[in-house]
Design a protein around this nucleic acid. Structure first.
Lengths: 248, 248
DNA sequence: TCTACCTGTTCGGTAACAGTGAACGAGTCG
DNA sequence: CGACTCGTTCACTGTTACCGAACAGGTAGA
């Protein structure tokens, strides 16, 4: 068996990925980029265009907004998102920092929604993916998992480092997760991005952590009492409220 | 030549579409829904899962948030969106109604962004698609096109009706677009949804209408002076400001 | 416990087709 | 006007996407 049962779909995915990364492109350029014949690249582009995923303008191709459509539809189906939507805006206002709702997917922490009072920072945006072990929200999500589940996560990801503060050993992660589980709170002190800190609280439903609420921002502003008491309190109480809404 | 050069990709698209419409599903159910053998449906699902697009949980499959990722990436690349982002929130506040940034794609008006002061209405959300001729924003976008381009649009879409107020003849559309072009403004009076009205102004760049700013809401609130003077003025001036930002 | 019947998954076989390389038309630059 | 580009089309062929059937694993009911 090969890697992917349907090879052509994998090729299409490579095309889409290249378009997502590089923006507008021509056929030849794309074909070279993903190592495909010009004819085949053209076939995929035409197919995607007919499907309404790609738009073409005088010989150049780029992705359309179809993905946005599907993406928001999927997100709107998440119970955690529906329950947290209003709470998020409230949290963003009271915290005065960028806040997000994060869910775990394929071993990554995915920002399902972001509310940002300041527009400067594009490092965290809706759809962003970061390693679970390198973010406050990710650790909050991991903290509710069984030791075996955490062990298999460690095995799969090998705890890739993003900064020199990123947790890189299984034992350090276990210890951290224990303290996170105890406090119902996780911190990120420059573990995903240099100089970026965060707090996160899990949103639990039926024993599982289905999502995490998080506040992130520059270390300069997120420190001392503000981080460890004020923001922490806000995130915790917001998460509790979301849990209540979620439980009906 | 068939309809789609790459048949397998079209099949995958059918799978994704079914998942987007129906939410979580099993293999057998999906196979029946899209008229595919169980084995083939399974192959596609496994492929999509390996690609990180689909997540599976004890035998059931659903779409993940990958689409949200690429969707926001694509949107963030739109110059019109970057220019209008802040203006949108301002407009939402001053108008006190749901506002949106709309672009044309494949003959549809697509909401690239939505700011909604009230959360009740889910008919218009980010990624929503509506016919160009049935919405204020769509007509604003069409109004800048050449007569030939409009004619080919009419031919492609046959001006499908959504309500009994929807413009359904080519001559009526031409007349409407002329008045829209003259005033730099378009209205929607229940043409897309019964009881929903809207105003829109095109955002022009180099002669083309690259996007449209729109305010939408219930007819009960959008009428008389408020619609025709207050909101109209707000949308117009906001669009002008976006145009200025866009021109650098 | 056994049976019957759901699932999801795996397994050959074959006809369709995804991918190739080369040729074609249409711009564009020198 | 030639010599490049580019996007698109065309036949060919080895691959493979799809099918039908068998397999595995769980649940419901008697």
């Amino acid at each position: 068996m090969t890697e992917y049962p349907v090879g052509a779909t994998e090729t299409t995915a490579r095309v889409v990925e290249a378009l997502a990364a590089g923006g507008e492109t021509g056929v030849t350029e794309l074909a070279e980029e993903i190592g495909l014949s010009k004819a085949s690249a053209h076939n995929h582009l035409v197919t995607l265009q007919r499907l309404g995923v790609v738009v073409s303008e005088d010989g150049r191709y780029r992705l359309g907004l179809r993905f946005l459509d599907v993406g928001t539809t999927v997100r709107d189906r998440l119970p955690a998102y529906r329950a947290a939507r209003e709470e998020l805006t409230g949290l963003a206002e009271s915290a005065g920092e960028t806040v997000g709702l994060v869910v775990a997917e394929h071993g990554s922490a995915v920002y399902a929604a972001v509310r940002r009072p300041e527009r400067n920072d594009r490092r965290v945006q809706t759809g962003s993916r970061l390693p679970l072990h390198a973010t406050a929200s990710g650790k909050a999500l991991l903290s509710a998992r069984s030791p075996e589940a955490v062990a298999s996560y460690v095995e799969e990801t090998t705890l890739a480092a993003r900064t020199d503060r990123t947790i890189q050993t299984a034992s350090a992660l276990r210890a951290e997760l224990r303290s996170v589980a105890d406090r119902g709170l996780a911190f990120d002190r420059g573990e995903a991005f240099e100089g970026v800190r965060g707090v996160a609280a899990p949103v639990r439903a039926e024993g599982e952590a289905v999502a995490a609420l998080t506040v992130v921002g520059p270390a300069a502003r997120l420190s001392g009492k503000r981080l460890e008491e004020d923001l922490t309190g806000l995130v915790l109480s917001a998460a509790k409220r979301v849990e209540l809404t979620l439980a009906e």
